[in-house]
């Protein structure tokens, strides 16, 4: 795969609690320089990112109910609406994992539907946090996302005990087929790993190591 195409898979991500204005400036500048698909940032910084990216094609992606997923549906819906108003192009929301674990699948579906309805035609990714789920629950979560018309299934927040896995991406791909896209995120730090996830079915890569992935291709190849 050429570098030109790989960069368009990348959501250049900065979600730490201590993210500063200067960090947002840096990742926006990097996203423009390397022509990444989007920046993925906390909702507080959307206005700032919008200004910084106004003359570029780089999209703004923000997180909702992040990273635990257990805020009320009304709050997630408000947060998503507000983010779109502020200028976000895509929404990465966290599934209400506790509801899934409680067997309340309808409520978990409704949580996603409500956010999807609130953001119109904007892209909705649902983070299912695979490290907290069994294989059966991953399939259940995928079906819920399809039922709620989510656009992407996203593997991980990066704030849980585990990251994206190739096995989970393959399982998600097998479950959703071409009815939803897949964003692999969490722990993807080099070129070869990114490539492996894309081969397994990922349509988007969420990573804070986008620059390393694009620029250190040769170096990282030797690690394998």
């Amino acid at each position: 795969m050429s570098i030109k195409t790989l960069n368009q898979y990348i959501d250049h991500t900065q979600l730490a609690s201590n993210t500063k204005f200067s960090d947002i400036k840096r990742i926006c500048n990097e996203a423009i320089l390397y022509n990444f698909y989007a920046v993925c940032i906390p909702s507080y910084y959307i206005n700032e990112a919008k200004k910084l990216l106004s003359h570029s094609h780089v999209k703004i992606c923000t997180v909702i109910g992040f990273p635990l997923g257990n805020t009320p549906t009304a709050v997630k819906t408000f947060e998503a609406k507000q983010a779109i108003e502020d200028g976000a192009d895509e929404i990465d929301m966290v599934l209400n994992i506790g509801l899934l674990k409680s067997g309340k699948l309808l409520e978990a579906t409704q949580d996603i539907k409500s956010v999807k309805n609130a953001i119109g035609n904007h892209v909705l990714k649902v983070i299912i946090e695979i490290s907290e789920l069994t294989d059966t629950e991953i399939v259940q979560a995928c079906n819920i996302c399809l039922e709620a018309n989510a656009d992407f299934i996203k593997t991980s927040t990066g704030f849980s005990k585990g990251n994206a896995t190739i096995n989970a991406v393959k399982l998600i791909k097998k479950t959703v087929k071409n009815n939803a896209k897949i964003k692999a995120s969490g722990g993807i730090r080099d070129y070869n790993t990114a490539l492996d996830f894309i081969k397994a079915g990922a349509n988007r890569i969420g990573t804070s190591s986008g620059v390393a992935i694009i620029t250190n291709k040769e170096n990282t190849t030797h690690n394998y």
Partner: peptide, 22 residues
């Protein structure tokens, strides 16, 4: 706004209000 604190103020206000209502 838990646990990162980095969401918009409006979103935090909405969450706090809803929690009190609930």
């Amino acid at each position: 706004g838990f646990p990162l604190g980095a969401m918009s103020t409006e979103a935090k206000v909405s969450e706090a209000k809803k929690a009190i209502e609930d």
